[in-house]
Write a protein that binds this DNA or RNA. Structure first.
Length: 427
DNA sequence: CGGCGTTAG
DNA sequence: TATTCTAACGCCG
């Protein structure tokens, strides 16, 4: 029996979240900004029509913003994450297997639904999410994950589908007709580089790609590209990943709100990023063995002196204890720091991540079981308090207090759904 | 195995 | 004046 997949994709997700709490921006052009309010990361349809691109720097569209009264928001991740949870919980009631693919997308296994009722089933999913969360979604249904992406693409771009399209029951000829209308760079897994390579071989549409020689694809687009071709042919080879896998790398990095030249401020920033990364690490019950610290000046400032350096440090034994990680990070920072530069960005990256279960004892280092247990318990308490009472209720001295280097976020909406003090009120 | 390139959201 | 962040994976040497 053929498998059936659905892709449920929230429309302009961050913008839709903001619109839930503001009646006045329903049909207005709305943009959500990246960290530091620097780039566009979400656009309402009105803004897409104006030609604003994903990731575009805000300063490039300053005039457009004024001319069209575009409403700007800083990103409000507490709100988006909470709304995402609510949507995903609802989706889980429609299928026994769900893959939460990103903050605004899930794949569902719909193999239990008959071909004739797929369209209707999709419409029920959409109506339910809308009723209980107010978030509009698009649903694409097909026999492979790559084809669900295409169905969703069509739903979003062409009017008349009302949010749901099943192409699972279509004949090969009908399918090919649809694929002919999709540019090859709009196929999932084909980015701008691969698209350019394909165009040199006169491959312009999803249909062209579907009928391309698999050996050529295998050579030039790797095994991933070969899978994409098979998926376009209706052969499912990208399985549903239902289990959340622990991350193999954890990164915490940010551009500063303003350039930094003092070592002490860099230390604060690096300590903070390390603390964040360590939280994520403990969240997935992991320990880390290798920590990498990097700093860089403003790469866009062409005429300013540039400096960029990173350094990895192996830890003596795997740990998730924030103070130990901060010490290691600061040591690395001191090795790479050069005075006389204005730094604009720093980051911390954890690699060689292992499960807490499979801890390897270090015979020669100063690892002791008692010490490990004590540190684990302490971090448990810190995490618990911060979860209950808000981030940074407890933090380490090295993280600093004033944090003047912090990113700019001048237009963040209230955390309506996760902070009692920020509930929507009418007064 | 590390570095690089590519893609995704 | 001004330009996100995070993660995965395949290939190659």
């Amino acid at each position: 029996m053929n498998r059936i997949f659905a892709l449920v994709d929230c429309n302009n997700f961050y913008v839709s979240c903001e619109r839930l709490f503001s009646a006045s921006i329903q049909n207005k052009p709305v943009i959500v900004l990246s960290n530091n309010d620097g780039c566009v990361v979400a656009r309402s349809n009105e803004v897409k029509k104006l030609g604003v691109k994903m990731g575009q720097p805000v300063f490039e569209i300053k005039n457009l913003i004024e001319q069209h009264n575009i409403v700007l928001f800083s990103s409000n991740y507490s709100l988006y994450a909470d709304m995402s949870d609510r949507v995903m919980q609802l989706l889980a009631t429609f299928a026994s297997e769900v893959e939460v693919y990103s903050i605004d997308e899930s794949f569902l296994n719909l193999s239990h639904v008959s071909l004739e009722s797929l369209q209707e089933y999709g419409e029920e999913i959409r109506a339910t999410v809308w009723q209980f969360t107010g978030i509009p979604v698009s649903v694409g249904i097909a026999t492979t994950k790559t084809l669900t992406k295409i169905a969703t693409e069509i739903v979003k771009k062409q009017t008349g589908y009302l949010g749901v399209l099943s192409i699972a029951q279509m004949s090969e000829a009908e399918l090919d007709e649809l694929l002919e209308g999709i540019s090859v760079e709009d196929v999932w897994g084909i980015g701008h580089r691969y698209a350019a390579a394909l165009r040199t071989r006169d491959i312009y549409t999803a249909k062209d790609l579907k009928y391309t020689d698999p050996h050529w694809i295998r050579r030039h687009l790797t095994v991933v590209g070969a899978r994409t071709v098979l998926e376009l042919r209706g052969i499912s080879c990208i399985p549903l990943e239902t289990k959340v896998k622990p991350k193999k790398g954890i990164m915490s990095s940010k551009t500063f709100g303003r350039p930094i030249d003092q070592l002490q401020e860099l230390e604060e920033a690096v300590a903070n990023y390390t603390a964040r990364a360590a939280e994520k690490l403990r969240d997935q019950d992991s320990l880390v063995l290798c920590i990498n610290v990097f700093i860089q000046t403003n790469v866009f400032q062409k005429d300013a002196p540039q400096y960029s350096k990173s350094l990895s440090k192996m830890l003596p034994f795997p740990t998730a204890f924030t103070p130990d990680l901060i010490s290691a990070a600061l040591e690395a920072l001191h090795s790479i720091y050069q005075p006389g530069y204005s730094f604009k960005k720093a980051g911390v990256y954890f690699s060689k991540i292992v499960s807490q279960e499979s801890i390897q004892f270090d015979l020669f280092g100063n690892f002791t079981v008692e010490g490990h247990v004590k540190k684990t318990k302490l971090m448990c308490v810190v995490d618990l308090l911060n979860r209950l009472l808000g981030r940074d209720t407890l933090f380490f001295g090295a993280q600093g207090i004033s944090r003047e280097w912090k990113m700019r976020q001048e237009r963040r909406s209230p955390r309506y759904t996760t902070q009692w003090s920020e509930l929507l009120s009418t007064t």
